[in-house]
């Protein structure tokens, strides 16, 4: 068996160094070595989106990404998209609309929805469906997920927090 190598990268803004084997996937490293829970391996084939993280600002399926390849990269997981106190507008919209049931796929959908809104700030229904096609929800909260993305888009466009938005709409 070949040896582990120590890689250094930025995880959710903080520098980390981890010793990983060549065969380790990014999801294995994140969950087994770094004990993060938000990204999860489900289908194992890059189809369901449960393991979505950002590498250098782009979404990837961490189940199909070798861990050593993030050496020197910036990695962001669901744990890194808010400051802990305030939720991201997409997270907030998911709660308000109720865009999940069991919640297992939810972090992946939220990661993809955030990226979608960066690419298409005012997405059409078709753009939402296509951008999120690599995410599967067996509870089938799809209608609510589409709603939540639209709500988050409106919030982002208005640059408002939920509380402020309520005030404005009142």
């Amino acid at each position: 068996m070949t040896d582990a190598r120590t890689i250094r990268f930025t995880l959710n803004g903080a520098p980390v160094s981890v010793s990983v084997m060549p065969h380790e996937t990014l999801i294995e490293m994140l969950s087994l070595r770094l004990e993060l829970k938000g990204a999860r391996e489900s289908c194992g084939q890059g189809l369901c989106g449960c393991c979505t993280v950002y590498v250098n600002g782009k979404s990837v399926s961490s189940c199909l990404y070798l861990a050593q390849l993030v050496d020197g990269a910036k990695v962001v997981t669901i744990e890194g998209i808010n400051d802990g106190a305030e939720l991201d507008p997409v997270q907030q919209a998911f709660i308000e609309v109720g865009a999940f049931q069991c919640g297992f796929c939810t972090p992946g959908f939220i990661m993809m929805a955030r990226e979608l809104l960066d690419v298409h700030p005012n997405p059409t229904e078709d753009e939402i469906r296509h951008y999120l096609i690599g995410n599967l929800c067996r509870c089938s909260a799809y209608p609510e997920i589409v709603e939540a993305v639209k709500l988050a888009a409106r919030r982002r466009a208005a640059g408002t927090t939920p509380a402020l938005a309520e005030e404005l709409s009142a």
């Binding site: 938000g38 744990e79 939720l87 709660i95 919640g103 939810t106």
Partner: peptide
């Protein structure tokens, strides 16, 4: 458990 689920902490 909404907050835990959207934060990936459930």
């Amino acid at each position: 458990e909404s907050r835990a689920k959207v934060m990936g902490q459930a």
